[in-house]
């Protein structure tokens, strides 16, 4: 039934992780209401906003890395994760 979707393991992991992330944030938000604050991004964000911004920034950074740096995908991933973490913590 799912054959036409030509599943691969990496894509499955990414989508399941994204789904778990949303569910996790929902449960977390239910027990600990997110605090709205202002970080170095100069806009007021709550926890979910920062997760989204970090997620999108990571994706955008990876595309740029792939476009500009020919190899060293793991180095790029490392920097991307660091970038996302910075946004999550101080964004």
């Amino acid at each position: 039934m799912l054959k036409w979707m030509v599943w691969t393991l990496p894509v499955a992991i990414v989508f399941i992780a994204a789904f778990l992330l949303i569910v996790g944030l929902t449960i977390w938000g239910h027990y600990r209401t997110p605090r709205i604050r202002k970080g170095f991004l100069r806009i007021t964000t709550d926890r979910g906003d920062r997760v989204y911004i970090a997620y999108i920034s990571f994706a955008a950074f990876m595309i740029l890395w792939i476009a500009l740096a020919d190899a060293m995908l793991y180095v790029g991933t490392g920097i991307g994760v660091a970038l996302a973490a910075i946004i999550l913590k101080w964004g």
Partner: peptide, 14 residues
């Protein structure tokens, strides 16, 4: 999801 799957493969048929 299907598009993401396509993006990582060279698909000739399922």
């Amino acid at each position: 999801m299907t598009v993401a799957n396509y993006a990582l493969q060279d698909v000739f048929s399922p």
